[in-house]
Simulated scan of single mutants.
Amino acid sequence: MDGLPREVRLTGSWHCRYGNFAIVEFLSTGVGYSIRAASKVVIGNTRFELPPGTVLGDVRHAGGGRYEGRHAMYQLANGAFGRWSTMAVTLQNSGWRLAGSIFDLHGVIAITFDRIGAPAV
């Protein structure tokens, strides 16, 4: 886990690649983190956009540098919410990156969040 303490606070802004390079915010919920769009999020390779403030997922600390939760999946055909899929990510690069997978009905999707600004320990 790159010598990080047991749990690192995830609050703050992160870059994430969806159909565009988007900015998301991790907000503390008291038991974990809510992940919300801070900029528009393009759904895959479509014309559909999610506005800032859209809830994209949530995670909880699962031990070490691992966080588990769920991620919203949107329909490529019309941009509508489809379902929640399980997500697991691990802190990397001294707390500057969260990388892992979304486990969807149609397969495993890689996801990476890169922190904007210094990690809060």
Rank of each mutant, 00 (worst) to 15 (best):
L50H: 01
W96K: 05
G107V: 04
D104G: 05
D114Y: 07
G53T: 02
P5H: 10
I111L: 06
L76D: 07
I109E: 06
D58R: 12
G63E: 08
L56W: 01
G63P: 02
L50M: 05
P119Q: 01
S39D: 08
G3Q: 06
S94T: 05
T29G: 03
A120L: 15
G12H: 02
L27S: 14
A72R: 10
M73N: 13
G30Y: 08
Q92F: 05
L98S: 07
T29V: 03
F48C: 03
P119L: 02
I109C: 02
V24E: 06
V55D: 10
A118E: 14
A77V: 11
S101Y: 11
N78P: 00
V41I: 11
V89Q: 05
Y74F: 15
T29L: 06
M87A: 15
S13I: 01
A77L: 12
G12Q: 05
T46S: 15
P5Q: 09
D58A: 13
V8E: 04
W14F: 09
A88I: 11
N93T: 09
S34T: 08
F26E: 02
E25K: 13
A38T: 01
R66L: 13
L98W: 07
A118Y: 11
T112D: 08
G12K: 03
V108K: 12
H15A: 08
G79D: 04
V55R: 15
G44M: 07
Y33E: 04
R60V: 13
L50F: 02
F48N: 05
A72F: 07
A72W: 07
I102W: 01
L91Q: 04
H106R: 09
I35C: 05
V31I: 12
L4K: 08
S13C: 07
G32Y: 03
R60M: 11
Y33W: 14
A38R: 09
M1R: 10
E7I: 09
V89Y: 04
W96Q: 08
M1E: 14
T90F: 12
R97N: 03
R47M: 10
L76G: 03
I35R: 03
G100D: 01
R47T: 13
A62P: 00
P51A: 14
L10M: 02
F103N: 09
A62W: 04
R60H: 10
N93V: 04
S94I: 00
I116Q: 13
A120V: 13
V121G: 12
A38H: 09
G30E: 10
N78I: 06
S34N: 13
G32R: 04
T46L: 09
L98F: 04
I116A: 08
A99E: 14
R9M: 07
R83W: 12
N93C: 08
V121A: 10
A110Y: 05
V8T: 11
A38S: 13
L105D: 14
I35D: 01
A62C: 06
G107P: 01
R83E: 15
L27H: 14
G12P: 01
R17T: 10
V24C: 06
G44N: 05
I23N: 03
R6M: 08
L50N: 02
G63R: 07
T86H: 12
T29M: 06
I102N: 06
R70V: 08
D104Q: 07
Y74K: 02
M73V: 14
Y33G: 02
D114R: 12
Q75C: 11
A22I: 00
V31P: 00
M87C: 11
G12F: 02
T86M: 08
G69V: 01
G82F: 14
R36Y: 06
H61L: 01
V59A: 02
A88Q: 14
G64T: 07
